[in-house]
């Protein structure tokens, strides 16, 4: 059984919801990424989304754009991110790690080499924002061969036929983008999520995580009631940006602990 499945099964037994924080690898610096990941887990994260920085993050708002720019300036590469996961796994064999980013760095490495490396270092899932199911055949094949879960996004604009298509391909969990926009934008519409979820559940048997626009503990709590996991990205990356290298792990951990408490209430 995969780490992702074990994690969600355990949470279900405990009647708890997953907290899925996102950080960008190499932000604020390369040496701080692994300590940050461990800090996230200690503060109550269930699944980790680790952003692979890309020069042209078209689906991201200014906060994650700046994080990507900082990370690339720090020399972060896909190869380097995989090395960080290997380092993380030395001390944590159970928390699922999902790489999130854009397809081109993987295309440049080659999907087979990438999938093989993912399996070696202990990556559990891969989400490529700009690779919809239509263009994911090759990626899917290589990830499947190495038992890496392809994670897909669904959006408010996704119709039923596409939900069915994603249901067939998705493994691990499905990430529902709760609003039309880039990461970190707008404010969440809870009733719209509530309306959409039954349509998703009809076809998606995997856990459903909801993200985009979750900025505080109260929203995280409200969203958690509707789905299986809460994804928090820009708010955490904002905290990284606002911190110093000395206090970043403590500050981010404090924020994640607050989110955890709110979700568990």
């Amino acid at each position: 059984m995969s780490r992702i499945q074990i994690t969600f099964d355990k949470l279900k037994q405990q009647q708890r919801k997953a907290l899925i924080p996102f950080i960008t690898a190499g932000d604020p610096s390369q040496p701080l990424t692994v300590p940050l990941l461990h800090g996230l887990v200690s503060a109550g994260a269930d699944v980790l989304e680790l952003g692979v920085p890309f020069s042209d993050p078209m689906a991201d708002g200014p906060v994650i754009q700046r994080a990507s720019e900082r990370a690339l300036k720090n020399g972060m590469s896909l190869r380097g991110v995989l090395g960080m996961v290997a380092e993380f796994r030395k001390q944590d064999a159970t928390t699922p790690v999902v790489l999130m980013g854009y397809g081109n760095p993987i295309e440049a490495m080659g999907w087979e080499v990438f999938a093989q490396r993912c399996a070696e270092v202990g990556v559990d899932g891969v989400l490529t924002v700009d690779f919809p199911p239509e263009e994911s055949h090759e990626a899917f094949e290589h990830l499947q061969r190495h038992h890496i879960a392809p994670i897909f996004l669904l959006a408010p604009t996704t119709n039923e036929a596409r939900i069915q298509q994603v249901a067939k391909l998705a493994r691990g969990y499905v990430y529902y983008v709760s609003l039309k926009g880039v990461t970190g934008s707008g404010s969440i519409d809870l009733s719209a999520i509530e309306d959409k979820l039954p349509q998703l559940r009809k076809h998606i048997k995997l856990p459903i995580g909801v993200g985009f626009g979750i900025r505080d503990a109260a929203t995280a709590k409200a969203v958690a009631k509707l789905c299986d996991g809460v994804v928090v990205g820009s708010r955490i990356v904002q905290e990284v940006e606002n911190s110093t290298e000395q206090n970043v792990v403590a500050n981010v951990s404090k924020l994640v602990r607050e989110l955890r408490q709110a979700i568990d209430q």
Binding site: M58, A59, G103, V129, D130, F131, P132, E134, E135, F152, L153, L154, A155, P156, T157, T158, N159, R162, V177, K180, G181
Partner: peptide, 20 residues
């Protein structure tokens, strides 16, 4: 019909824009 010119082209976009 899927928008490919041989190996080139396609619809590599975020899910929100695919229906558009």
């Amino acid at each position: 019909s899927s928008g490919h010119f041989g190996q080139f082209g396609g619809i590599y976009m975020a899910e929100t824009l695919i229906p558009a």
